[in-house]
Simulated scan of single mutants.
Amino acid sequence: MTDLPTLRESLEAHGLLAKKSFGQHFLLDLNITRKIVRLAGPFEGRAVIEVGPGPGGLTRAILESDAGKVVLIEKDHRFLPLLGELDTGDGRLSIVEGDALKVDQSKLVEGPTHIVSNLPYNVGTPLLIDWLTGAWTPVAMTLMFQKEVAERIVAQPGDDAYGRLAVISQAVAEAKIVMHLPAAAFTPPPKVASAVVHVVPRADRPDPQTLKRLERVTAAAFGQRRKMLRSSLKQLGGGALCEAAGIDPDARAETIDIDGFLKLAKALA
């Protein structure tokens, strides 16, 4: 990687600019990308998937690490030639052109797989939910989000940011913010700061049916978060559902912890 031109030189050589419609903001400081990869590892030869690599700043750091197979999923075809320049021909790097929301990632790798990505802002949340609740689950994820989204993932009951995303994320995984980045770290700078979240799925995650019910319960509860649960959950059973779960029907969604929502989801069965 040390023999390659700088990321800025590569972008200029290919005449590339970030596309606002794709939510692109490039991280060009290799000291930062290397730190993110250190926080994500060690990989010990396991596969790593990166979504939205863009000019490849994070990719270079991943390829310098102890990762095994490295798979890039890039929707913007303009970056494919630039990313191809990172391929040393040893078969370690694989580049897939496509939308990560539609690509079956389970067919791209074998065995335990890490995901390390500076996620495009417009698809970060749905991708996280898909990885957490879908049939295929990574062994760990180290993901960059807008700071506001990162705070929503790790929020606790009573926090202003506590909502559906926190409940679903923490019901199936342990998540913590491991790094903060100012807008000035990116090219072009976004209007908000960013944060890196490290997510590790739980071994005792709820079964798929419970997760589906959890999504229904949290959608109703936080859709009317200022109302008591007996009202916000009325279509799902209201007070009777709460009593079956052992939850105070006069409580509001933002005060119920993860275990409480899981009890509501199981009672919904």
Rank of each mutant, 00 (worst) to 15 (best):
M1R: 03
D3M: 05
T6G: 09
L7P: 08
L7K: 05
H14M: 03
G15H: 10
L16C: 05
K20H: 08
G23H: 06
H25R: 03
L28P: 01
N31S: 14
T33F: 13
R34V: 00
K35F: 00
I36C: 06
A40N: 07
G41H: 09
R46V: 00
V48E: 08
V51N: 02
V51A: 06
G54A: 13
P55F: 01
P55Y: 02
G56E: 11
G56D: 12
G57H: 10
A61F: 11
I62R: 02
S65Q: 12
S65T: 04
K69N: 02
V71R: 14
D76N: 09
H77G: 08
R78D: 08
F79K: 02
L80R: 11
G84T: 05
G89N: 10
G89F: 12
D90P: 00
G91T: 10
R92G: 03
S94C: 04
A100L: 10
L101C: 03
D104E: 15
D104V: 01
D104W: 00
Q105Y: 04
K107C: 01
V109F: 03
E110A: 11
T113V: 15
S117A: 15
V123T: 07
G124H: 05
G124I: 06
T125R: 13
T125E: 14
T125G: 04
L128D: 02
I129T: 13
W136T: 04
T137C: 09
P138C: 10
V139H: 02
V139L: 09
M141R: 04
T142E: 07
M144L: 14
F145V: 00
E151F: 00
R152D: 04
R152V: 03
Q156W: 06
G158N: 10
Y162G: 04
G163S: 10
R164Y: 00
L165E: 03
L165F: 05
A166G: 12
A166E: 13
V172H: 09
K176D: 13
K176A: 13
I177E: 05
P182D: 08
P182I: 00
A183L: 06
A183C: 03
A184F: 01
F186Y: 05
P188L: 03
V192R: 03
A193T: 01
A195I: 07
V196R: 08
H198G: 00
V199Y: 07
D204A: 05
R205T: 00
P206E: 15
Q209H: 11
T210A: 12
L214M: 10
E215D: 14
E215L: 12
V217G: 07
V217M: 12
A219Y: 11
A220E: 15
A221H: 09
Q224S: 14
R226C: 07
K227L: 06
K227H: 08
S231E: 12
L236F: 11
G238I: 07
G238N: 14
G238K: 14
G238H: 13
G238D: 13
G239D: 15
L241P: 06
E243Q: 15
E243K: 15
I247T: 09
P249Q: 15
P249W: 15
A253W: 13
E254C: 05
E254W: 09
T255M: 14
T255F: 02
I256L: 15
I256D: 04
I256V: 15
I256M: 09
I258Q: 13
G260Q: 11
K263L: 12
K263A: 14
L264H: 05
L264T: 05
A265S: 12
K266I: 02
K266T: 12
A267L: 08
A269M: 08
